[in-house]
């Protein structure tokens, strides 16, 4: 009887994991690694719960800034020295650039942020992220030349 119960559990587990297709596994990997990267590179200021710190560091959870994902992706790589307006409040501390983060790192952080606080349930793929990062790199170089 006990043996039968164990078998049933194992079988259920087997089918469950089989049902979890490649895409879901990939999303889980992105989310978990994104969470680790977020903890290491972002949570100091934006806090583990994504709520930010007073008027010093803006929140990510519930932030209206999330509606422009391309801007968010560029911001993670290049930082920002100008004030930023989040939910109608202005924040003046510069955000440091993160040149040490690779494209896949940023894709994973973005997936984590949007799945956790952006009411999204899809992956922000590295291919998509690389394209966006490339565009903003070119744009930044152009503005540099103009200045």
């Amino acid at each position: 009887m006990k043996k039968a119960a164990i078998c049933l559990t194992v079988l259920t587990l087997f089918f469950e994991s089989a049902c979890q297709n490649q895409e879901e596994l990939k999303q889980e990997k992105y989310f978990v690694e994104g969470y680790q990267l977020y903890t290491e590179h972002c949570a100091n200021c934006h806090q583990t719960d994504g709520k930010g710190l007073e008027a010093l560091y803006p929140p990510i959870d519930g932030s209206d800034y999330l509606k422009d994902k391309e801007k968010v992706i560029c911001l993670i790589r290049y930082g920002q020295n100008e004030p930023i307006v989040v939910n109608g409040r202005s924040f003046h501390r510069p955000m440091p650039a993160n040149p040490q983060l690779t494209d896949i790192d940023i894709a994973e952080i973005t997936t984590f942020i949007y799945n956790k606080w952006g009411e999204e349930n899809v992956i922000t793929d590295v291919k998509e992220t690389s394209k966006i990062l490339d565009t903003c790199r070119v744009q930044r170089e152009k503005t540099k030349v103009l200045n």
Binding site: N44, C45, Q47, L53, E54, L56, Y57, R93, P94, P96
Partner: peptide, 16 residues
């Protein structure tokens, strides 16, 4: 220091 990117935000979170 105010512009410190590493442990200061953590410290200020806790000191708060």
């Amino acid at each position: 220091f105010v512009s410190c990117p590493t442990i200061c935000p953590k410290m200020k979170t806790q000191m708060k």
